[in-house]
Simulated scan of single mutants.
Amino acid sequence: MGGADGEAGERTPVGGAVTAGRRVTLAGAVAVLVAANVLNNRLAPRLAPLTSAVATGALLALARRSGLSWSELGFHRRSRGLRIGGALASAVAAVYGAGIAIPATRRFFRDERALSLSTARAFEEALLQVPIGTVLLEEVGFRGVLHALLARSYGPRPAVVVSSALFGLWHVLPAMDMATANPALSGLASGEAPGGGASGDGPRGGGGGDGRPADPRLEVSRVVVGSVAATGLAGAVFCELRRRGGLAAPALLHVATNSLGYLFARLAPAEPFRQGERPVPAPEHPA
């Protein structure tokens, strides 16, 4: 980290042969992330901040033990990263505000996971669970440690591709929950037109033209595939932000996208259910 402000550029030397030690370190980092993902999304979601903090520490220890510098891990260009991330976070807030103000898009922001929470729990999610339980681990894990390990052995471009693909797969479990918690997005992924009717001649909810309702498993699969693709692409964008502003830039955008989602989901005015439509109950254990 060069300079008083850590503004020195990042230099990631690409080694020759990929040694067994590097493979073990990379496999260990992936194993830590997999374990944290299962704990945070299935076994102990309320303990996500603790789990993520421990996992982040373990990942940084692996990376530093393997010889990676703090600059290689993305802890550089702090001032630039704060400026870039702050500007993007403001843009996210503006988009969310417009989204809940426009009737045609409002329902896509009404997430039952946020609406089912008390005010105190919503603040816990926005101010603790998201920044520490989600963003800290994902940014340090994928844009920091995994990216640096891959870049050192294979070069920067493969590092972006592989870390972003793994970031997309990381969202399989959250996407399965989202398919239930946000029926509007689930219906859109299943072929439902944004205005409320189904695309084509099928009934509302993505059913086929013969009037049969859509298979719920197929709907969930579509949401999962779409989420993995979208978050994989987002991972590539975050990698570019990391290149330009270190980890601070993608971290601020990431926090804004997730934390403000809880706030604006609660601010979005409720809409009456259309004829034949039933409200979708919130999950018993919101993540």
Results as ranks from 00 to 15, higher is better:
G232L: 01
T12W: 00
A27R: 09
S71T: 14
Y96P: 13
A230R: 01
E112H: 10
R222Y: 07
V225P: 02
V223S: 09
G141L: 05
G197P: 09
T134M: 10
G86C: 08
G6E: 12
R107M: 07
R80T: 15
A234Q: 06
L253I: 13
A48H: 01
A48M: 00
V34L: 13
D210K: 04
F167C: 02
A120K: 11
R274Q: 14
G57L: 01
L169G: 13
A248L: 07
G6P: 11
A234S: 11
T51R: 01
V224H: 05
R244D: 12
L252F: 04
A189K: 03
I100F: 04
P194E: 03
E240V: 13
A8I: 05
F167R: 00
R212E: 14
A189T: 15
I102W: 12
R78L: 11
C239R: 06
G196N: 02
D177I: 13
G97M: 07
S52H: 08
G191W: 00
E240L: 12
A189W: 06
Y262A: 11
V280Y: 02
A8D: 13
R217H: 14
A63P: 03
A249W: 04
A230S: 09
L241E: 05
A120S: 15
A48E: 04
A151D: 12
G16W: 03
F109T: 14
L39Q: 14
S164F: 04
V223K: 06
G57K: 05
